[in-house]
Design a protein around this nucleic acid. Sequence first.
DNA 1: CCTATCATGTAATCCGTTACATGATTAT
DNA 2: ATAATCATGTAACGGATTACATGATAGG
Lengths: 174, 174
Amino acid sequence: MTPTSYVVLGCLALAGPATPYGLKQTVAGSIGYFWSFPHSQLYSEPERLARAGLVTEQREDRGRRRRTYAITDAGLAALKAWVVTPTDELPQIRDIGMLKLYFGSIADGEQLAELARVRTDAHRRRRELYSEAAAGHDSGPGIRAGEALALRFGIAFEDASIAFWGSLAKGLND
Amino acid sequence: MTPTSYVVLGCLALAGPATPYGLKQTVAGSIGYFWSFPHSQLYSEPERLARAGLVTEQREDRGRRRRTYAITDAGLAALKAWVVTPTDELPQIRDIGMLKLYFGSIADGEQLAELARVRTDAHRRRRELYSEAAAGHDSGPGIRAGEALALRFGIAFEDASIAFWGSLAKGLND
DNA sequence: CCTATCATGTAATCCGTTACATGATTAT
DNA sequence: ATAATCATGTAACGGATTACATGATAGG
């Protein structure tokens, strides 16, 4: 079971049965901001889960032969058990920009300043996206509480990033 | 060329020729905080780089037959070109705790509060680690500027995380 | 001297990405 | 009609993780 497995289980649990494409829709624009993967995963992963008995697969027997997946009781139990076990494993931040900065001593100041500007902008845009999503979110409470919290953290992260790269850009500017 | 490739190239560029184990040492306790991978990667990746002519491999012909890798001119050029090209690709935060929180609606409040406490503690410890590393770092300036910057960002990130999970733990408490 | 930990390496498996492909809808 | 985009799926490759394995060194 990888994190991807639980994303699929979680989406099926929260939003009900879905096709791989439906999962793609669900993931994009929500948890996908924080944990993304190509859509092909959403074909192979449910297959694995089905083999493990955590979801059921039902396939149209005519037309496009679309598959619809639904979470089973075993799947729900597995998801619950996972959610309920606290992790102390720390987040992994995979940030190409940070990597480049880390090895930045082989570049000159102006190049690093440009990097910092580009990054500041990218983070600003992302921050916008999050706050819009959060705003459009104030309507449906309850079920989507997790999403609102994730967005709140996302905004905090973007703010920290903007502050960091922004001050770096300023500091490197002449 | 994956990010891992550039981590290896960068370490060889900054710290000079090294064996896979040496690379492991270099990575752990520095860039490894932000971009980690198992040590077996540090055996296979230099091999790939050697095939591409970006590093040279020299192997002891007796004893343990240890391999030592050194960056070539081509490798340095590739690293430089990569560093100098600004990326607008955003960081990926892979945070198991955030995932669990996202799907937290299937758990109860006390369980989420426990998760929040565990996460707060983990982030506090990590923050400690970073600030110690940053303190012990004030000595050697210049070459290690990138590392100091990365640590600064790391601390900002941990602060944001502590604030987020901390307030969540408080809010969920009764 | 023995045991634990450090140091060093290999192999196999599998997830994840990239690339390829094609059937439906919608818009112009 | 035709182009474009949405919807749906498969195949193959390779990097990353996990597991296995063993030679040195130090501590008790």
